[in-house]
C-alpha cells in the first residue's frame, strides 16, 4: 500500500515553554484523535514527530496512525532549526519507499514545520540538505516573533502565520493541519498528490497566509 508520510517538525525551544508548548501537545493529540475517525487517513497517513531545541530529535519515527502514541513534549534550549531540517531529510530518505519493480512508491511526504524563533545553528547547511529530498506539500508556520523570511526559504509559497501562541490559535492551526492531511489522504487514494498551499483547505481566520 502506498503510504502518505507526514512529518511534524516542531520548535520546542525555551521560548515555547508554558502555554504554547502545552497547546502544541494538545494539538498533536487532537490531530491524531480526529484523523483516526477518517477511514482514508487511518489507513494511508503515517506520522512522525521531530522536535528541535538545542538539537533536533526524532521523537516519534514514522508510525501508522493506529499505532501512533502522542509523545510528551517539553520546551527548553535554543533553536537548532538547521539541524531539524537535516534530520527530517535524513528520516525521509530512510523511511519513504521509492518505486521499484516489486514495490509501489509511497506518496511524497508532507511537512508541517512550526517555529517561533530564529535559527541559532547553521541554517544554510540544513536547508541545503532539506532541498535534496522530494517533498509533497511543505508548510511552515511562523508563531509570534518567528522570522518569516527564513521560513519562506523552506516553504517558498506556503508560509502561514499565527500572531499569538495561545491555545485557541494553536488549536486552529492543528485543526487545519488535520484537515490538510485528511484531504491529502483522500486525494492520494484517488491518485492525485497535493503540492502547495492553494490545494490545501483554506486556513481559518486565526492563520494568516504570508505572501
Amino acid at each position: 500500500m502506498r503510504r502518505l508520510p507526514v512529518y511534524l517538525v516542531l520548535d520546542t525551544s525555551g521560548s515555547m515553554s508554558g502555554e504554547p508548548i502545552q497547546a502544541v501537545k494538545n494539538g498533536v493529540q487532537m490531530l491524531v484523535s480526529s484523523l483516526r475517525q477518517d477511514p482514508q487517513a487511518l489507513e494511508t497517513a503515517f506520522l512522525s514527530v521531530i522536535t528541535f531545541d538545542s538539537s533536533a530529535h526524532e521523537l516519534v519515527p514514522l508510525t501508522d496512525l493506529p499505532s501512533f502514541q502522542a509523545p510528551n513534549i517539553s520546551a527548553t534550549g535554543v533553536t537548532a532549526m538547521g539541524e531539524a531540517l537535516s534530520l527530517v531529510a535524513e528520516c525521509a530518505k530512510r523511511d519513504v519507499v521509492k518505486a521499484s519493480a516489486t514495490q509501489k512508491a509511497d506518496w511524497r511526504p508532507m511537512v508541517f514545520l512550526m517555529s517561533d524563533g530564529v535559527p541559532t545553528d547553521d541554517f544554510e547547511k540544513g536547508l541545503a540538505r532539506f532541498k535534496l529530498e522530494k517533498w509533497g506539500a511543505v508548510v511552515a508556520c511562523a508563531v509570534n516573533d518567528a522570522d518569516v523570511s527564513i521560513l519562506q526559504r523552506i516553504a517558498p509559497e506556503s508560509v502561514v502565520q499565527l500572531d499569538t501562541s495561545d491555545s485557541a490559535s494553536m488549536s486552529a492551526f492543528f485543526k487545519w493541519v488535520t484537515a490538510s492531511i485528511g484531504l491529502s489522504s483522500k486525494s492520494v487514494q484517488s491518485g492525485k498528490e497535493l503540492e502547495g498551499l492553494n490545494q490545501l483547505p483554506p486556513p481559518p481566520p486565526e492563520i494568516q497566509v504570508v505572501v
Binding site: 502506498r2 518505486a99 509501489k104 512508491a105 509511497d106 506518496w107 511524497r108 492520494v188 491518485g191 492525485k192 498528490e193
Partner: peptide, 12 residues
C-alpha cells in the same frame, strides 16, 4: 496490457 504508470505513484 502494460499499465500506463507515471514516474510517481498514481499518475496515468
Amino acid at each position: 496490457t502494460h499499465a500506463d504508470g507515471g514516474e510517481h505513484a498514481g499518475q496515468t
